[in-house]
């Protein structure tokens, strides 16, 4: 089982859109896929039309009073299950803090379903927190959407530093440009700069496309409602680049 997290310290950069679309593509090619919506705002949960409710809340999951299997919801798509968000996830830091191995607990929880899934996506809240420390420790790949702006480069540097400070096994960090506008000169320059300073940046760029925004109306992944759109092709390309073998 491989764990792939979409992560960025900043919000509104495309983490959820990416997690939802890539999870859909992974499932479509036959991988048994789980998406865990860790963000109390529940955007991914909403996009799959699932109610943001976990019995016993994040607390029951974290302290293992309820197995995560009991909280799983089938999505409308084959091979794709969701572990929904719950508003109580906003307190997850506190709950994790109460456990032994406080930085490893999420990974341990995922071990209990490792026989059932080939790939797990973690859609993370934008923060540096105990939850994100857990996510980093549990992941094989951190996929980082970046909006090509100087500010977001700073955030990326912070993030890389944060990852490098995590003890034990570290995930591979792969950045990609999200909502990029090739016509904007500044965007082009930033992309060049990133590449040249040796960061692992995916070749695929996901431009700013209105179809992606429409996910909220359709409440579905892009390739499900607009399979031939440019956006769908971009996500397919991105998936081909980052998918674990």
């Amino acid at each position: 089982m491989k764990v792939l997290a979409t992560y960025n310290i900043k919000g509104g950069v495309g983490k959820t859109s990416t997690a939802v679309n890539l999870a859909y593509l992974a499932a479509r090619e036959g991988r048994r896929t789980l998406l865990w919506d860790l963000d109390p705002q529940a955007a991914a949960t909403f996009l799959f039309r699932v109610r943001p409710r976990v019995k016993g809340g994040g607390r029951a999951l974290v302290n293992r009073r309820r197995p995560i299997e009991a909280a799983l919801k089938a999505t409308d798509f084959e091979n794709l299950a969701l572990l929904p968000a719950d508003f109580s996830y906003r307190n997850m830091d506190l709950e994790l803090d109460d456990t032994k191995k406080r930085t490893r607990r999420l990974g341990q929880l995922l071990d209990s379903v490792s026989g059932e899934y080939d790939i797990v996506f973690l859609d993370c809240p934008p923060s540096v927190s105990l939850v994100s420390e857990n996510v980093v420790a549990a992941s094989d790949i951190l996929l980082v959407p970046l909006i090509p702006a100087t500010l977001s480069m700073r955030a990326f540097e912070q993030l890389t530093r944060f990852v490098s400070e995590v003890e034990g096994r570290r995930p591979e960090v792969v950045a990609f440009f999200s909502m990029a506008d090739r016509r904007k000169r500044m965007h082009r320059d930033v992309i060049e700069a990133m590449r040249s300073n040796g960061s692992c940046v995916a070749d695929t760029i996901v431009p700013a496309l209105s179809v992606i925004e429409q996910m909220a109306q359709h409440r579905a992944p892009v390739p499900a409602f607009a399979p031939t759109s440019r956006a769908a092709r971009c996500y397919e390309q991105l998936w081909a680049e980052v998918r674990p073998t």
């Binding site: 479509r28 090619e29 036959g30 048994r32 084959e78 091979n79 299950a81 059932e116």
Partner: peptide, 8 residues
Amino acid sequence: CSSTVTVP
């Protein structure tokens, strides 16, 4: 089977 598995 705990769940249906589908592969292209």
